[in-house]
Design a protein around this nucleic acid. Structure first.
Lengths: 118, 118
DNA sequence: CTGTATCCTTTTCGATACTG
DNA sequence: CAGTATCGAAAAGGATACAG
């Protein structure tokens, strides 16, 4: 049981992608956008602890990768909506299973850590 | 479509776990161990670019989380075997779907980036 | 409201040398 | 062979101030 890829391809292509979506905030953002379209400030409020700087940067990266779309309305004050693209939805669906794994096995991991630490 | 969790729980528990397994090398290590038991040097050779320092650190973390087991043989020169635990196998199975997503959609992402960059 | 720019601290991680 | 220790470079990221 092992992903059947030349190792360089795994690291250089897959990991480049997973690094992006696996950074500190992207998963939280994508998950929040899974609830529907959100404005900048709504995301900032919903994702506890994220700085304006990182929210902007993460959204730009997700937009660049085609997971999130950005819509600017030419009004005052400015309004910008973010939402998942089709690709973004397929990613969230997959990320779900990993989140579910983490939730399901969190007790096992906590227990393993306690055992290891003593 | 959104993981139905209070946000703090998602970030504080799930992300703590995903940060661990989503760090720079853990996925590559777990994937390699999916092929069977490996010695330290075998892992080092198989995972291109990893330093001794990071291999040791990542293995310790994975062991602490209960994903990898470590067996020391009291021989000279030393021999240490690493292999996935049951928990580690369930993780690899889940991580697979994410890797598959990355492989499947890599062309889309590359294209999105090119479009964004111009 | 939705950002950008700057500074500065913290964290990460590679390189190297050394050990049992 | 399988590590540990130390150093320093680089990157990540928070805080703050400012802009359209």
């Amino acid at each position: 049981m092992q992903v059947p890829l030349p190792h360089d391809e795994l690291t250089c292509q897959v990991r480049e992608i997973l690094d992006r979506v696996g950074d500190k905030w992207s998963l939280a953002i994508v998950n929040e956008l899974g609830g529907g379209t959100r404005r900048f400030t709504e995301l900032k409020r919903a994702i506890h602890g994220i700085s304006q700087r990182m929210l902007t940067a993460s959204l730009r990266n997700l937009e660049r990768d085609g997971l999130v779309s950005r819509t600017v309305y030419p009004v005052v004050p400015p309004r910008v909506d973010y939402e998942l693209t089709g690709l973004g939805h397929t990613f969230l669906k997959t990320a779900w299973s990993l989140m579910s794994w983490a939730i399901e096995h969190a007790p096992d991991i906590v227990e393993a850590r306690q055992k290891y630490d003593q």
